[in-house]
Design a protein around this nucleic acid. Structure first.
Lengths: 124, 124, 124, 124
DNA sequence: GTGGTCTAGACCACC
DNA sequence: GTGGTCTAGACCACA
């Protein structure tokens, strides 16, 4: 199996990102239980250590919490999730625009570039 | 000295990115000579081998070329540079929008988000 | 030890060529693990950095891939390998014929030359 | 000017090869005088040292000879040139076939490959 | 002087 | 354990 992970970034970070996004867009519901470390490791085809690390990271970000002897749960603090989502959004926008400007693109070019891209994508 | 390099990405890649952008936005002119490996290494505070690797990478990208016994030169092929710039731009836009969409933002939200950010930044 | 490397070409390129050919003619099977960098360096009598460079090059050619913390593996994409083999073949033929023509040999002479060579070699 | 030299091989060797072939296919006639070092260097856009080295190499190969105070001349020994040509031809064939065999191609494939290539090239 | 290769040895993150 | 990065310092051919 080609395990579908990029080589340029550590697997655990790729997983953190993927799951974080699923949670933040409510694809995984607040309060929902995550799979056990062992099961999840099998499902993802990675080492249990890696899953452990993912859980740690998610907990540190405050979007999942471990309950003793029961497992890992998505936080039920909806405000926390919304805030997280907004923060991620602003991070993306900030780095995107600054990198575009480093390539020498002005504001107008940036906006029309994005607009064009989204429109043509829609028409495909 | 705080050597001004991030820890999350290899130094040589940070340099490649930085220089690539300088070249692509014509901050360094086509045909211009880059510093010698040894001089540049001193300026940047890194090992000559690291600079060498950067040069290799830039040459592989087709934006600089080595002339035997003379040094490294920015390519004079302006079209190549323009093409590179366009390609980098599209890469940025593609990953940006796809990541925004993974966070659950729609087209409209993406565009207005960028617009708002650029405007408020201007007013600061 | 006469380390069995030619002086006219860098060691790492000689290794790349050698291994590439072994892979492409299926002497090393798709999916097979290559020796670890350190082990291989000892076997080949070169520095680990040199082996590392060879691996980089082979990965860039798309015929091996690194799996984090596990090692380097020959790609399992058989089509990729076949394509590579064909490409190398055509390169060889192209440069060979063009160099023969630069020596002033015509098509007929080229073909009969090769035929003669192969036949006499067989009879030895 | 893109000086039309490959980076993978030293310039002087590229020149030796080029001129050697011109001589051997009688594009430059036996007994003909080569340009002076200085003139030739200007024509080729290279350093006079490089031309000097080329001349040395060609003399060592026995296909040009220096006459004191007069310059470099292509040898008038036609047999020498014919022999040289034959030798170069056999070298090309030998390395070509051995490299094809290293890629796992058999005799038949090699010959038909060359034939196909020459025919399709003719038809273009 | 230039770039390019190679060695030796260290350190790191990842799995 | 694995690959990947970096440093230090050497040597070479080329122009």
């Amino acid at each position: 199996m080609g395990s579908s992970f990029s080589n340029t970034q550590p697997i655990y970070l790729q997983l953190v990102q993927r799951i974080c996004r699923q949670i933040v867009r409510r694809e995984v519901q607040p309060g929902e239980k995550l799979p056990s470390v062992r099961d999840w490791a099998v499902q993802l085809g990675v080492n249990p250590n890696t899953v452990q690390r993912v859980n740690m990271e998610l907990e540190r970000m405050g979007i999942v919490e471990s309950r003793r002897g029961q497992g890992m749960f998505v936080t039920e603090d909806g405000a926390r999730l919304a805030e997280m989502r907004k923060q991620l959004k602003e991070e993306l926008i900030t780095t995107f625009t600054s990198e575009m400007e480093e390539l020498g693109f002005g504001e107008e070019e940036i906006i029309t570039g994005v607009q064009l891209f989204l429109r043509t994508k829609t028409n495909e």
